[in-house]
Design a protein around this nucleic acid. Structure first.
Lengths: 207, 207, 207, 207
DNA sequence: CGCTAACCGAGACGGTACGTCTCGTCTTAAA
DNA sequence: TTTAAGACGAGACGTACCGTCTCGGTTAGCG
């Protein structure tokens, strides 16, 4: 119904910037449509007209914030374990920081609350990030460092799923050591039998 | 301040039952204190007096609902892979069912929203469940089926983290095949080198 | 703070009509803000925004109900006693009727409860009514029917004060005879000595 | 139903004292049953058992407070005008004082709210006070200072009604001058024609 | 002189209304 | 027609009291 050609670019970007700013400095429960509108100096109706609610604004804001071109592809140094350690250490560092993980927290809450949001978030934000890891694994498989018979999507989830679980459920600290340990475990599972090296893990049980 | 000895057991259980019922039949956003009070035939003040808000009620309701004795310990048939497949298949089946997973969805949202809730939920609901898996793995390690050098907490997260990630992010279907595949991958990572069998996984890449 | 130019006339009048209707059909204690809002099909906030509570709404409702132009001026037939009997009989008849006096009862309770309400009620509702009587007495004084040295405000209170006292305190029936008797007594007090006729009153003592 | 012989005198008097104290230091709206019970160190049920609610407690409290023997009879110096001036000046002084008139305010509100309360208040508190004035007037009538044909109840209301009206409606200041003026006006109406002196009133109109 | 029934304080209970907050829609005036 | 502004109907929030009910613990009067 609204005529997109008349849409105010000034308002659009003010809204997205306000949403990101509020995400970073307040609890997600305080990120109300009224707060965004007020901070952006915009009428509430402008938000409801073009997005329809808080969720879609947050999604757009983060897409915009994290770079509309999507994440850069992972480096491929040839050292699979080293490359994956860098990725997982980065993920774990972001999750461990309350400020940095605020956006992920917001996205997760919204994802759990709305199917529609979940799909859009997955396709427009998450998938591109996971695909960078998947591509690295695909290259590794071509190089014979990963078994031919593993589903690469499963492989990605094996790598990062545990960290997200630990973050959400607060079951333990998110450290570099944890990241490295998980990379070891995952690679042990993924490497071809012939190539498989001896040890993974190495820590004793947590108390 | 309130005198617990005068607390009405009738009201307490009516409230918890109402909360579970509403969780299963409505969106989490519709689970208001007023709705719980009304459904339970109880004054709002009774909820605020003993719990203080929606979150703690939901937590208690689920602790009560899932059995106050905690989850039963896992069977140990000697077949580690078989036992773990049963566990992960059960988890995946619950997550795949919209009705059954409503409680987990609610808990996760509340966990992401409140630190205090997160801690209580982790200690009173989640930990006991994870510990049953941990104990099964400990037995397996004693039997030489799991490497001595893995942190069992990490092992548990390796096993179930991917499924929760897939559930939350909707990155793919949650099937028995997925559960079995993840058990294979995890066990490949966990088994001592000497015992390690050839294949894990087996599916081609998802499209 | 609210912008009066955007105020909804539809809501304003619906609220005032609802208040009058409820005043006439229920006890004053049942005249809650929620009941008014519900009956008027209006959000509670609209009442709190423009009035601030029950009292001011009731005041406005009655000002609106009794005619925003104020009471009509009293007739002046030249017969002072006759004119005043009409006034006091009308007052007494209204007070004697439970339904008709419901509004006066409400106003009086609110007046006794709030200084601010008391002032607004006096200036906007009561004073205009008392002034009509005062004007009639002023005309009578000009015609030599009332002594020059009486304070006309005192004269008005001498006339109507007893009836209100009897109504409030239920010390006796409010009849036409009572009204006439009080007019006689008051006029006896007010008439110039030269004009003063013999008898006032006439009833024997009440039992 | 309750057995009066077992009633606790300690509680009874604590409740009445608490009610009077709260009446004098708070708004009438703050005089809740819970506040009385708490101040008196008494269970709420004790109040509901013996009185049934706030109104009856207030009534009893004031009867108790103002002296259970009722008001003393008026002095009769032979000077009717002087005696009545004392009475009306006392009434007016009490009404003019916010603290002293708090009890009258409370009684009036309750009287307007409940028929049952109104009757009990009238018979047990008000009538005895009015009767002292009535008796003084009866003596005056016997002495030929008041006309034989006036209803003494009407005469009492003529005397005090205006002051109560002015108090309630805040239509003007309650001063000794006002009291004296009203006594003059009333006596002018009440005196036998033969005895009637020239002037009553004397103030010019209020501005 | 002990039993026992009613009182007592305390305060939890199911309710109702309060006054506030935020939602998502609707209305207005300016650009 | 879109915008900023903000009033609107709706309804949940958390609090205060209502009047009733349920506890143990006195306390008085009958046996």
């Amino acid at each position: 119904m609204p005529d997109a050609s008349r849409r105010s670019e000034r308002s659009r970007s003010a809204i997205l910037r306000a949403a990101v700013a509020l995400l970073e400095e307040k609890e997600y429960a305080d990120l109300t449509v009224e707060a965004i509108a007020s901070r952006a100096g915009v009428g509430k109706q402008t938000i409801y007209r073009w997005w329809g609610g808080r969720g879609p604004v947050v999604l757009d804001a983060l897409i915009d914030h994290l770079g509309p071109d999507g994440p850069p592809s992972l480096p491929d140094t040839g050292d699979l374990e080293g490359d994956l350690r860098l990725v997982l250490r980065a993920i774990v560092a972001e999750l461990a920081d309350r400020r940095l993980s605020a956006t992920t927290r917001a996205l997760t809450i919204e994802t759990l609350s709305s199917d529609e949001f979940a799909e859009r978030m997955r396709d427009r934000l998450l998938r591109p990030q996971l695909d960078t890891i998947k591509e690295r694994l695909r290259a590794a498989r071509a190089a014979g460092q990963v078994r031919d018979d593993v589903d690469l999507d499963h492989a990605v989830e094996l790598l990062i799923g545990p960290a997200y679980h630990r973050w959400m459920m607060r079951t333990g600290p998110l450290t570099e050591g944890y990241a490295d340990d998980m990379v070891d475990l995952a690679l042990t599972a993924l490497r071809p039998a012939a190539v498989r090296s001896g040890a993974a893990g190495g820590a004793a049980d947590s108390p």
